[in-house]
Each structure stands twice: as C-alpha cells, then as structure tokens.
Design a protein around this nucleic acid. Structure first.
Length: 540
DNA sequence: TACAATGACACA
DNA sequence: TACGTGTGTCATTGTA
C-alpha cells in the first residue's frame, strides 16, 4: 500500500505502508505527483491510501492516469462514524477533513452556558503543530485508527468488504464522470421538436406545443387567464368551476371529469420535459457528444449514489433515445432483475423465499407457492412488506406473506420496530442508518419505522450493486470498454462492437461474484438482464 | 432582491 | 387499480 498526500506546489509526499498502517520504508517527496503516481501504478499497482478519491482522482484522470485500487479515508470515516452512531456529531468529519489537508481543526462550538475560558485552556485547544504541517502523517494515523476500529465491529470481514466496495465505487464514479455518457445532441433536438414542437425564438419562452396547450386549457376554462404551470392558479381555476381539489397532482386530476384535465396532464408532462431535459439542459450539460454529470459515491444515506447537476439519475425514458453509442461501438445495458426482494430473501435467510429467489422470476415462483399463481398479488405483497405499506388492497396479500414467510416478515418488522423506538439498523455489510435526533412518537415514529424497514433492504441492494460495479470495472481493466452509466441497479458499458459478447459475459460473471461475495453459498440468485444495443432506449 | 419552503414529478 | 422507501431539479410562492 502507498499513502499519498498532495502538496500545494503540485508535488506530493509518498510513503509505503503495511496493511496495518505501519510504515514500510522512508517517506519521499516528489515534485510532480501525477507522474510519480503513474510510475508507481505501472510498476506495482498498489492499493493507494488517500484522503479523498473525489478530490485526488479527477486530477490523475485528466492526465490519463488510471489506478486499480484505493482506500478512501473520508468515505471510510463516514461509514465508521455511522456504525458508531456518531455520524451526526458536528465536528467528527470536519475535524479529520481539516487534519488531512493540513488545515486548522475547527474549534468546538462553545456550550451555551459555559463559563468564559482562560488563556491556558485556549492554548490547550490549539491544533497540534506537527499534525497541522503533516497531512501525510495525519493520513497514516487516520488509516491505522480506522483499521483498529474496523476490527472492533461485529462483522469485521463484511465491513472490510464494504470499505473496499465504497472505495472502488468512488474510483468508478470519478472515471464515469470523466468519461461521460455518449449523447447525440442532434437526436435529442429531433425528439424535443417532435414532442414539444418548434422552439421559440425568444430565449426562455415556451415552444409551440406548450403555447397551444395553454390556449386550449384557457378555452376549456371559459377563456380565463390560467397559468397551468402554477398549481395554485390551477386550483383556483377548478374551484371557480365548482371543483375543489386537494392538489393538482396527476393522479388526483385523473379522477376529475373536466374537459381541461387531459390537456393539463399533457401540458405537465411536456412542460417538465422542456424545463428539466430540454434545450437549455442540453446546452449546459452536453459537450462534444458526452453528458458529464458529477457522480457522488456515498451521497445517499442508504449508500446509493447521488449526482450533482444534470439530474443524471432521473433521465426520463423518452430522452434515452439520445443516448447512442459511437460509430463502431455499442452499449451493453445490464440491470438486476427484482434486486430488492432477492436481497430480502438473502439477508433474512428465509428458506422459502430463498427458494423462490433461486429462480429467474421471483414473483412468479412466489405466486405459485403461496398466491394461487397470482403474480401481481405476490409482487404487491412483497413490495408492501419492504416499503411498510399498511393500508389498501395489499393488506390480505401481506397477511399471506406473514403466514407463509415468517422469517422474512420478521426481518423487516424488527427493522421497523427498531427504527420506531429510535434505534439504529444496519445493512448486511454494516452501513448504518442515521441516528434519530430525538425521541419520536406517533406518525413521526412510524415514518422512521418505514425508513429503517426499507433501509436494511435498500442499503444492502446498494452494496450488491457497488460490488457488481467494482467487479465489472476490474474485468474491463486494460480493454477499451468503459463504464459510462450507473443507476442504482443498472449499468451501461460503452464497448467496441466486436467486444460486446465478451463484455456481456464479464458483466454476468461480476453479478454472480457479487452475490457470492455478499452472501456466500446462499441459494438466492441475482440474475441480470443484459442487452446489447446501439441506443439506450432500445434496451429491454 | 435573495433565499427558503413547497409542490410536482422524473428515476430506482 | 389504491401512495409505502430513497433521491434531484425546476417553478412558484412566501418571507426577510
């Protein structure tokens, strides 16, 4: 392992370490960090120890340097603080962040009733001068501390896998952001014109079809000046016609008998396309045939990724027509089928559910076993159990689930009760939900119960996906194929046409390995639907 | 005028 | 078919 800390002059300091964090050689200073890292990577491809992949790696990527493995101290620290129930501590993360960058540690905020402090006490509080000047020392110290804390968790082996997956995920996130998703601006423009009509010559003014729809909506309201993009205005317009609505949500409007309703629904859909993924979106986010969002690994408490800008994780299905492989290239699209119920079967160790999850269609197997072959009811029951549904027609189906798969049922119920009473729940590998800030009661307690019930599943599903991603990445290393998109349970690889089958096999193999790494010899399978397409919209 | 809260809806 | 989890983004509306 090689620890690396950048210095302000573009150089950096390197130190070879053993796995427990003890030094294995002398520290050396290099004038050009990027070149030095490249050389070290080529010769020995070590695991890199650094403060933050998100701040270090893009710089290397811009210089054409790719690394194989790393340990990301900040992401690991967030995982450990969460595990220890300290995530909300105001100073915990900022403190380590500052020390790793050689900055002064922010002081504790003074307690509201504290007596004024004397000079000596202030002096005691000053950051250690050596630590201040020594980010590399702080890094090595933080790593050794993390190694010891990981050894103390309930399942250290699982937690080490989590740390490795989180760090690998951060590498993938930086690489995907750097590489970008192939995006045909001309195809995007064509489909926008098709759906929205001619764009206005006036910047910021709506395209033709939206203008027409507004006119027809006004006509349906007897010529009143209605602004359909304003929910409050729409509510007023309906109430003038004697129709009082709780909101203007699409599913509320669908139950309303009024000539304006179908027009409003169409307007909403197109208006959203125009504002969220229209021409100005394209101008802002698409450059040289690539959409380059910034992925934030570990950005969601459940371990799912977030993105900053561009709404990369909410690309509407119609817009996926603009995602087209380069000439001579192809897209390998793989998504995990029924990932969350399969995760439930595996983590709960419910043998009946695991038997159903050993097949390609979990819902169908479950239906055959317990729901008289009614696949839709089986699906509703399972989703209801994972999301905490309490009412509606799912209730009888939930009762069947409870009676026939008590182990799985109890697993999610226990997570819900722990959450309601303010406790912490963990994913399979040890990612921990945020602590409750106060004692809860009533609806707020129940809401936290629904959250923790879902957390144990969603966070474990995110772990499976992260391990899949890491597996795909390492199998593609040294080939021209690139991971270009990842969305919770779906990955896209941009590959030369001739390599498509090989890449598809690699993705499937990574999926099988992810299941084994997480759950050993569980009978639960995690099949991937893989398709090889020119255009993302054509994926099955 | 700037920012925060809200409503709505896209994705998994 | 009924609204239960997690997000990000935009427009509107309310407040400082």
């Amino acid at each position: 392992m090689v620890a690396v800390a950048p210095t302000e002059d573009g150089g950096g300091r390197l130190l070879r370490l053993c796995d427990d964090g003890t030094a294995d050689g002398d520290e050396r200073h290099v004038a050009d960090l990027v070149r030095a890292a490249d050389a070290v990577e080529r010769v020995e491809s070590p695991r890199w120890l650094w403060a933050s992949t998100a701040t270090m790696y893009p710089r290397l990527l811009r210089a054409g340097v790719r690394v194989g493995r790393c340990h990301d101290v900040e992401l690991t620290e967030a995982l450990l603080l969460g595990y220890e129930g300290r995530y909300g501590e105001p100073r915990a993360l900022p403190a380590i962040w500052a020390r790793l960058r050689g900055l002064p540690v922010p002081p504790d905020p003074p307690a509201p009733d504290a007596a004024p402090r004397d000079q000596d006490a202030l002096f005691d509080d000053l950051p250690d001068a050596a630590a201040l000047a020594d980010p590399l020392g702080a890094l090595v110290e933080a790593y050794a501390d993390q190694v010891a804390r990981i050894a103390a968790v309930e399942h250290p082996g699982r937690f080490r896998l989590l740390v490795a997956a989180e760090s690998a995920g951060a590498l993938v996130a930086a690489e995907m952001g750097h590489h970008g998703l192939p995006w045909r601006a001309d195809v995007h423009d064509e489909l926008l014109r098709e759906l929205l009509g001619e764009p206005s010559r006036l910047a910021g003014a709506p395209p033709r079809r939206l203008v027409e729809l507004v006119e027809r909506i006004r006509a349906a309201f007897g010529g009143a000046r209605v602004h359909p993009e304003s929910p409050a205005d729409l509510l007023r317009a309906f109430s003038r016609e004697g129709i009082v609505l709780p909101s203007t949500r699409a599913w509320v409007l669908r139950g309303v008998d009024h000539p304006a309703v179908p027009l409003i629904l169409e307007f909403k859909e197109l208006h959203r396309l125009w504002t969220a993924h229209g021409w100005s979106w394209r101008e802002q986010w698409v450059r040289d045939g690539r959409f380059n969002p910034e992925y934030v690994a570990g950005g969601v408490v459940s371990g799912r990724w977030a993105t900053r800008g561009g709404g990369a994780l909410q690309i509407p299905k119609v817009v996926r027509r603009a995602v087209v492989a380069d000439e001579g290239w192809t897209l390998v699209v793989a998504d995990a089928a029924q990932l969350e119920p399969r995760v439930l079967a595996a983590v709960a160790g419910d043998t009946g559910l695991a038997t159903a999850a050993a097949t390609g269609d979990l819902y169908a197997a479950l239906a055959a076993d317990a729901f008289d072959g009614d696949r839709a009811r089986a699906k509703v029951a399972l989703l209801g159990a994972m999301y905490g549904q309490t009412g509606g027609a799912a209730v009888p189906a939930l009762a069947v689930l409870q009676a026939r798969f008590p182990t799985a049922w109890q697993y999610v119920e226990r997570a819900a009760r722990t959450g309601e009473s303010g406790g912490l729940v963990r994913s399979w590998l040890g990612r921990t939900c945020p602590a409750s800030d106060q004692r809860l009661s009533g609806e707020r307690a129940r809401a936290r119960g629904r959250f923790t019930r879902n957390f144990v599943i969603q966070a474990t599903a995110a772990e499976w996906a992260l391990i899949l991603l890491a597996g795909v990445r390492s199998r593609l290393a040294g080939t021209p194929a690139r991971l270009v998109f990842f969305q919770h349970d779906e990955v896209l690889v941009h590959a030369p046409v001739g390599a498509a089958d090989e890449v598809a096999d690699a993705v499937r193999a990574a999926g099988e390995q992810a299941g084994r790494l997480l759950f050993g010899h569980s009978t639960v399978r995690f099949p991937l639907d893989v398709s090889v397409v020119r255009c993302y919209a054509d994926a099955a």
